[in-house]
Write a protein that binds this DNA or RNA. Structure first.
Lengths: 195, 195
DNA sequence: ATAAAAAGATTGATTAATCAATCACTTTTT
DNA sequence: AAAAAGTGATTGATTAATCAATCTTTTTAT
């Protein structure tokens, strides 16, 4: 049993090392040797866990998505008015992003080059579609009861998605930087939330 | 005289070929051979115009900034209320971006990896600072006369910058796609502009 | 319980492919 | 005919992936 546990930990260590390196340097400029060194394993070991550099990259981008999905689910399931739920969503997203910047940078790095990483980008697009499918009904509900200004809900969802994408790519400061507060404030404003 | 003209045109052709290739594939995965082929020149010719691949990349990112500066200047100099000027700015930016997507993708690609391209990123940061220095006074003026909701003007400028960054990276559709209208609408909303 | 043996994991030197940059030669312009 | 620009084959450096040797864990046999 010890072996299986060790291998899971080692795999996680490699991924953990790979994510910031890929986020900082992109796919090609990140070498497997550097990842191995950073993870504290031998060069060859990496290929016991991932069949290729591409495979490792894919895992580094896609596996953190699961955590995202759970956050999204919580928001959809949450109680409260659309106003409250959307506000919570914005806060939740931006706090999560500020604490997982490299994962997010990596995701949006791939979204910025979809033709280069078609398979991975397709998974991210699918996630984005799920995201819209979850947000649109909340917006619509808010528009019905007058909490949210009238507009195309899908257009608003796209705009919000672009906004959080841009924040992640632009914002390199640590989670305690006051700019994050500002980004939350204006993220809410997109939905017409001004308090 | 003919020679000088030809050389300028050839240089421009190389840059024109390089921009979308770098935007699609990033720095490392774009080969000089591909750029040369796309530009219709020989491999060696590229190095008559640019001392290295890095040099070509830098030119591809930075030279289009001049056009950006002119747009910015027009907005600052323009007559009208802050409301009118900011609305024009958003429209102007997003229309420009939709028509120069690859240039913009390339700029934001570099901003996403500032430690990898420190020199180029510094020039882009300098541009961003100029941008903020131009936008903040307009926002302040609008807040003074009540057209723009009260908030930290620099925080708002950052949020807008992140927004347009995100739109460029997210939005791959052609300029006539109706989503661009939506992005303009919600860009205006960030500034509290709702008409 | 202990030891031998089998299975599985770790490793980095080697290999083969890729690509930036050079440079000797050719073509075009002055 | 001199100068300048264009060119692509060659070169050297880099790096992903392999693999044979080594080490570690698990299983089996006594």
């Amino acid at each position: 049993m010890k072996r299986e546990q060790n291998m899971l930990e080692k795999r996680a260590k490699i991924l953990e090392a790979a994510i910031p390196l890929f986020a900082d340097n992109g796919f090609s400029a990140t070498t497997v040797a550097t990842i191995a060194k950073q993870a504290g394993v031998g060069f060859g070991t990496v290929f016991n866990y991932f069949v290729s550099k591409e495979d490792l990259f894919k895992a580094a981008v896609i596996e953190p998505l699961d955590e995202q999905r759970e956050i999204l689910k919580k928001i959809v399931m949450a109680q409260g008015t659309p106003h409250e739920r959307l506000k919570k969503m914005v806060i939740c997203h931006l706090q999560h992003f500020s604490n997982h910047r490299n994962q997010m940078r990596l995701m949006f790095y791939v979204l910025g080059q979809p033709e280069r990483f078609p398979e991975i980008a397709e998974e991210l697009f699918a996630f984005a579609r799920d995201f819209f499918a979850a947000v649109v009904p909340i917006v619509e509900e808010g528009q019905t009861n007058g909490e949210i200004p009238a507009c195309d809900p899908l257009g608003l969802s796209w705009s919000y998605f672009a906004y959080i994408n841009g924040v992640v790519m632009t914002m390199l400061d640590p989670p305690d930087d006051p700019k994050w507060e500002q980004f939350i404030l204006h993220g809410c404003r997109l939905f017409g939330i001004t308090d």
